[in-house]
């Protein structure tokens, strides 16, 4: 660490990438600051170099082409809540962004990129994006790479935050009639959920033809509950189906978190509860436009 850190504000993605590639470490990327400033303020993080990516135009803007919504990493939660393209094509993302903690002050400044790079198991955006099959575009040492968000979240060498830059998030537009719900169970009025679930569902003549379900805030990684929803395919959403889903989910939580948001055993049980509630709400919404 250095007593006198340095600072750079590159004005293009190429310049930022070249700068990062030439540094030997000790650098940190900053944009909104919502994730790292608490660590800086309390001395838990003492970077030698700050790279401010807030001026990179390549990381801004929301657009749609060929059924894919492209969202710049610098998009703040407030824009996700109010953007017309997100509201129409990705309503679950808009809803999840509105459920994030920290209040309006944080929604006004916290970026999508920072939220994802934090890889925080209690955060709200990732479960929704995973349930929607999002991909991400990264730049490292001048090379652009596209990968699924799911794969990225299981990589330990992604380098995001110090070597690689998350540029955009690419999300397939939700098909018309898709049911969706983001369910967040909170023990208190605080920011974090004790368990959360993001679900999408397609119905045909009252029977489930496709479904996705992600469960967050119960383990150190977000859990893809595909194994639990498999049994729903071809079925109608009945009380028995709901109970079956609720009972299948806790077993997917192999190593539950045990923290201020609740004990491990309880979190496992709540994984089933939020899964059931999210799927029920998604089914209720399916087919409506």
């Amino acid at each position: 660490m250095s007593l006198y850190p340095s600072f750079a504000r590159p004005n293009s993605l190429a310049q930022a990438s070249e700068l990062l590639a030439g540094l030997s470490g000790g650098s940190v990327i900053i944009a909104g600051g919502q994730e790292i400033m608490p660590y800086i303020n309390h001395g838990a993080m003492q970077p030698d170099i700050y790279i401010d990516i807030g001026g990179l135009k390549e990381l801004r803007g929301i657009s749609e082409a060929d059924g894919v919504v492209s969202i710049g990493a610098l998009t703040v939660h407030r824009e996700l809540q109010g953007n017309a393209i997100v509201a129409e094509k990705l309503p679950m993302l808009a809803d999840a962004a509105s459920r994030a903690g920290g209040g309006r002050q944080v929604h006004n400044r916290a970026t999508l990129g920072g939220n994802l790079v934090a890889m925080h198991p209690l955060y709200d955006i990732a479960p929704a994006l995973l349930a929607l099959g999002a991909e991400v575009e990264l730049v490292k040492a001048g090379e652009t790479r596209r990968t699924s968000l799911a794969a990225l979240m299981h990589e330990t060498s992604h380098g995001l935050g110090s070597e690689a830059i998350l540029v955009r998030v690419l999300v397939p537009a939700m098909a018309a009639g898709t049911g969706w719900a983001y369910e967040k169970l909170k023990l208190s009025g605080g920011a974090y959920g004790s368990a959360n679930a993001a679900a999408t569902v397609q119905l045909d003549a009252g029977r489930i033809t496709a479904a996705t379900l992600m469960i967050g805030a119960v383990a150190d990684r977000i859990i893809d509950a595909a194994a639990a929803v498999q049994g729903l395919i071809g079925q109608a959403w009945t009380a028995a189906a709901a109970e079956q889903l609720e009972l299948r989910c806790p077993a997917l939580v192999k190593q539950p978190l045990s923290d201020q948001q609740g004990s491990g055993e309880w979190r496992q049980a709540m994984a089933g509860v939020v899964a059931r509630r999210a799927m029920a709400a998604a089914v209720a919404r399916a087919g409506q436009k």
């Binding site: 504000r9 400033m37 608490p38 303020n41 920290g102 002050q105 006004n108 400044r109 920011a191």
Partner: peptide, 29 residues
Amino acid sequence: CQTGHCGACTVMLDGRIVKSCLTQAATLP
């Protein structure tokens, strides 16, 4: 708190409220 929980440091930045403890001064030319 300097962690973003309490809101006592709120200011309006370019027309939007923000927590000033979570915003780095040098990032605002």
